[in-house]
């Protein structure tokens, strides 16, 4: 291999490794934080942005579900799960996407932009021409896992939970 092309290739290798390293690992110092910003911008641009913080730094301690509550003109109220229950051999992969959307992103304060389109989508999905929707709510219910104890822990199938819920958005149709 010619010396110049090898030198160029070595530069590309170092550059690539630098980008995946600094954009992929957590910040530990000021230099690292600054380089991470630049590295992440390049990684995002060329399509190699990472996301390796799986169940880290601490795993979540609750099960979360999002629901759509639809109120019709005649006063009937119906609640639907945002997620669908996929069937077939590829169901686990489809379910993983629905879970990511409904359990992680839709409830996230950083992803509030997802709520309005979700309202439009569910209005379209559940509307009834003869009995139109007058109000839609998207809410989430979650249950926190009982804290871990070094002495004894409840069985996996009988772990106590603390049930909670919150309304993420309410939309009155015709507003």
């Amino acid at each position: 291999m010619k010396r110049l092309s090898k030198c160029f290739l070595n530069m590309l290798i170092v550059l690539y490794l630098g980008i995946i390293y600094f954009s992929g690992v957590p910040e530990t110092n000021t230099l690292n934080t600054r380089i991470k910003k630049q590295a992440s911008a390049v990684a995002l641009g060329i399509g190699i942005w990472p996301s390796w913080s799986m169940f880290a730094p601490n795993p979540i301690r609750f099960d979360s579900k999002s629901f759509v509550e639809v109120t019709y003109k005649n006063g009937v109220m119906k609640e639907h799960d945002v997620e669908i229950e996929p069937k077939g051999p590829l169901a686990p992969f489809r379910k993983a996407r629905w879970m990511k959307y409904a359990q992680d992103n839709l409830r996230s304060p950083n992803q509030k932009g997802l709520l309005d389109p979700a309202i439009r989508y569910f209005r379209n999905k559940y509307d009834d021409k003869a009995n139109p929707i007058v109000s839609i709510k998207i809410k989430r219910k979650w249950s926190e896992v009982h804290p871990f104890s070094n002495h004894s822990i409840p069985s996996i199938s009988k772990t106590p939970r603390i049930e909670k819920n919150e309304i993420l958005i309410t939309k009155t149709i015709g507003e």
Partner: peptide, 14 residues
Amino acid sequence: LVYLATTLFKLKGY
């Protein structure tokens, strides 16, 4: 790097 990064992220928590 996937493994190394996830280990470092996990070591940041308790």
